[in-house]
Design a protein around this nucleic acid. Sequence first.
DNA 1: TCGCGAAACTTTGTCTTGCAAAGTATAGCT
DNA 2: AGCTATACTTTGCAAGACAAAGTTTCGCGA
Lengths: 98, 98
Amino acid sequence: MFDFEKIDKVIHEKGRLGIMTLLATRQSWTFQDLKAELEMSDGNLVTHLRTLHDNGYVAVTKEMLDRPQTSYSLTAKGRTSFQDYLTILEQIVKAGRS
Amino acid sequence: MFDFEKIDKVIHEKGRLGIMTLLATRQSWTFQDLKAELEMSDGNLVTHLRTLHDNGYVAVTKEMLDRPQTSYSLTAKGRTSFQDYLTILEQIVKAGRS
DNA sequence: TCGCGAAACTTTGTCTTGCAAAGTATAGCT
DNA sequence: AGCTATACTTTGCAAGACAAAGTTTCGCGA
């Protein structure tokens, strides 16, 4: 019926799913904004962001304003992977609502 | 924006999400049918089903036909929890498609 | 110039899971 | 009695989430 093996394990985790969803709604997010929105610890957030970056889903931009400020955004690959993931979610919702 | 903490960790796991989705499409599934559809090992499938049962999401019916046959179905609690979960998925899809 | 604090990590450690392989129990068929 | 299928349980490992504490780097104020 469904191929649940297709579910992307990198995205399908509460923390990273939150990050990906936020990144999809805006061009760019700072570390601080993500942290405030998701209420994650520094270590946890950085680890998830690194996992996403290592998989080529997230781009990192480091800037020096008056304070250091790192921003994150989706890569093209990240965006398509996320859309593919959403397609599976849609199928699940559709099946589950019947 | 979203409260990702609301995501039900019992449901939000690839294996159990598969089980719950299948159970939502039919009144009842046998162990063998679930196993064939999800392509899981016996131990893995039983463990997930027990987790779902321990959380009150799944009812178990044991029968003796010519062979032992155990069937699984959603409880009322399981159904509402799953619907709540789907609601969050819908929000994510909606946000991610914008 | 010497801290001080903030941002963004890294490190460490713990604890929970997923998952598979192998073993067990029960019942029917031959 | 022995074989097979179902439905488990047990064991063990490896991966991952997560938090707390330590680290680095910068700007700024005393």
